[in-house]
Amino acid sequence: MKISVTINNKPAEFDVMPDEYLADSLRRYGYLSIRKGCDTGSCGLCTVWLDDKPILSCSVLSMRAMGKQITTIEGVKEEAKECAQYLVGEGAEQCGFCSPGLIMTILAMKRELVNPTEQDIVHYLNGNLCRCTGYVGQLRAVKKYLGVE
């Protein structure tokens, strides 16, 4: 079935299966920054925005995106690059496989939380798993990026 969406501020039409998840449709249409890590909605790798809210695209049926606005990291390129510079500055991208999903969550947090504390940050990002960094460097990076003391 065909669905009309707005993706990264451009209108598009996707041909999707009724039981297909958004992460799979997006990868099929060439949005390869979307990574899948778990199949159970527990790792955060596939995070994109649906109408500006972070969602796990592996757990949202593609049909649900009908008429909505999808944002992937490609759609917030400059802002993502700026954020990535802080991650890379701490060496906290490591294998990089979870980074796009993490950056999409960080950018959503930046919009949602005013003056977050360290605790707020840890809480907000808790659903984004990473096996390489031990999270400590990522926290240093996010605090620097957001200017949190």
Binding site: L32, S33, I34, R35, T72, I73, E74, K77, A80, K81, A84, Q85, L87, V88, G89, G91, E93, C95, G96, F97, S99, P100, I103
Partner: peptide
């Protein structure tokens, strides 16, 4: 010296550089 990873920015911003990509 604490140089950044040469592939860091590409992989952090979602470049299609892994096997399945």
């Amino acid at each position: 010296s604490p140089v950044s990873k040469i592939d860091g920015m590409q992989i952090a911003t979602g470049a299609p550089v892994y096997t399945d990509d």
